[in-house]
């Protein structure tokens, strides 16, 4: 187990290097003089030339690009992702402050999609070809086609304005999280239902299920004790890859619901062309992806004894 863990952690290092190259590349693409923009953001406008020159030396802007990258990477490794062009706040602090709201949203969305999609997918596979199966496929097809920002607006209209049941904008409360989490969950319900159904169909055709049937086990026991663990093993790696996508998908939803999370920060900064903050989002989602990968590997090792030997 320890060896497996070390191997998996080592495997994410090239990923982190690539994320850093990408982030630095995006930084370098941005127009404008970073030194001047930062000095102006710190409150000195128009920027005095000597302050700009000092900033330029601090950021090593007159050095070759390789040196600049190493400097940037050394800072990033210590959690320094630069400062905002608007507020001069450190980018990493801005993200850390808003991370809890996004994590809450992601957790709620994951909970919703798992509780809806996994039972639905397994049930659809058990009742293959019936109306329940068709209903599951219908949900999957619609969930994949609905634009999140539009569904968000429709739900705010229906539940917020018409029925007045739920708070609509930026309310970080158990009631306020329902609508945004539902919208974030929608595409995942679709993907997860499809995956679970396909995986369960696959599992149901294997020999051990036949043996379980011949032993005279009830269908519910077959579903819970025999089918479910094997389905979970198959869908966990795919699910973990979708989780990082959840962060980027949540950006648009957070924007519509004025949810005070990292996605909304990224969108607001993108619209105002605050490059350091926007690039910080790429770093944040990249790290989240790497960690989700790692978590998936560990979970699989825990629930599937066959994987532990690897």
């Amino acid at each position: 187990m320890a060896r497996l863990l070390i191997m998996r952690i080592a495997a994410i290092i090239p990923m982190l290097v690539a994320i850093s190259v990408l982030a630095f590349g995006l930084h370098s693409l941005a127009p404008g003089d970073p030194a001047r923009l930062l000095v102006e953001a710190s409150g000195l406008s128009p920027a005095p030339p000597e302050a700009v020159a000092a900033k330029r030396a601090e950021l090593k802007l007159d050095q070759p690009i390789a040196t600049r990258y190493v400097t940037w990477l050394a800072g990033a490794a210590q959690g320094d992702l630069g400062r905002s062009y608007r507020t001069y706040e450190p980018v990493s602090r801005m993200y850390l402050e808003r991370l809890p709201a996004t994590l809450a949203l992601a957790a709620a969305a994951t909970l919703i999609s798992a509780t809806v999609a996994i039972p639905l997918g397994i049930f659809a596979a058990f009742r293959h070809g019936t109306s329940i199966d068709r209903a599951a496929q219908f949900i999957a097809v619609f969930g994949a086609a609905a634009p999140g920002f539009w569904v968000a607006l429709m739900l705010t209209y229906l539940f917020g304005a018409r029925l007045g049941w739920l708070p609509v904008f930026g309310s970080v409360t158990p009631r306020g999280i329902i609508l945004p989490a539902l919208v974030v969950a929608l595409p995942f319900i679709s993907i997860l239902t499809r995956l679970t159904r396909a995986s369960a169909l696959d599992v149901l055709s294997s020999d051990f299920i036949n043996v379980a049937r011949m032993k005279g086990l009830r269908e519910s026991a077959i579903a819970l004790r025999h089918a479910l663990p094997n389905v979970l093993v198959q869908i966990t790696p795919l699910l973990s890859l979708e989780l990082a996508g959840l962060l980027s998908g949540a950006a648009v939803v957070e924007y519509v619901f004025a949810w005070p999370g990292i996605g909304r920060l990224a969108v607001d900064s993108a619209l105002l062309r605050d490059t350091p903050v926007v690039v910080g989002f790429a770093v944040a989602t990249g790290i989240a992806f790497a960690l989700a990968n790692l978590a998936a590997d560990i979970i699989i090792a825990l629930i599937d004894p066959r994987q532990r030997a690897v």
Binding site: P14, L247, F281, T285
Partner: peptide
């Protein structure tokens, strides 16, 4: 390796950053 690394950051996030820049 390159693809694995590029896929670590969701496409929508890169697109968001690029259109902003």
């Amino acid at each position: 390796r390159l693809l694995e690394a590029l896929l670590a950051v969701p496409g929508l996030v890169i697109a968001l950053a690029l259109t902003s820049i």
